Simulated scan of single mutants.
Amino acid sequence: MNTIRKIKKEDNAAVAALVRNNLKKFHLNIPGTVYYDKDLDHLSEFYSRDDRSYYVMENPAGEVIGGIGYARFASMEDTAELQKLYLDDVAKGFGHGYKLIEFIETKMREAGYKRSYLETHENLKAALHIYEKAGYTEIERPKEVVHSTMNRFFVKELSIR
Rank of each mutant, 00 (worst) to 15 (best):
M1N: 11
M1G: 12
N2T: 09
N2G: 06
R5C: 15
R5P: 06
K6E: 08
K9Q: 07
K9C: 01
D11G: 03
N12M: 04
A13Y: 09
A16I: 04
A16H: 01
L18M: 11
L18F: 03
N22W: 01
N22F: 07
L23F: 02
F26Q: 09
L28W: 03
G32I: 11
Y35F: 15
D39R: 14
D41L: 10
H42V: 06
H42E: 09
L43A: 01
L43K: 02
Y47F: 13
S48H: 11
S48R: 13
S48N: 15
D50S: 15
R52S: 13
S53H: 04
V56C: 07
M57N: 02
M57A: 14
E58V: 11
N59G: 05
N59T: 07
P60H: 09
P60G: 09
I68W: 04
I68S: 02
I68C: 10
G69C: 02
Y70D: 03
R72Y: 13
S75H: 08
D78E: 14
L82T: 01
K84D: 10
L85Q: 00
L85K: 00
Y86W: 09
L87N: 04
D89V: 09
K92H: 05
G93T: 02
G93I: 05
G93V: 02
F94N: 12
H96W: 06
H96S: 09
Y98H: 13
Y98L: 00
Y98N: 07
Y98R: 08
Y98C: 00
K99C: 10
F103H: 07
E105N: 08
K107N: 03
K107Q: 14
K107H: 01
M108W: 00
E110D: 14
A111S: 13
G112H: 08
H121Y: 07
H121I: 08
N123H: 12
A126Y: 11
A126T: 11
A127N: 00
L128D: 11
H129D: 15
H129E: 11
I130Y: 02
I130V: 14
A134F: 01
T137C: 10
T137M: 14
I139H: 12
I139Y: 12
V145E: 11
V146I: 15
M150V: 15
N151D: 14
N151Q: 11
R152C: 13
F154C: 12
F154G: 06
V155R: 04
K156T: 04
E157I: 13
L158G: 08
L158M: 08
R161D: 15
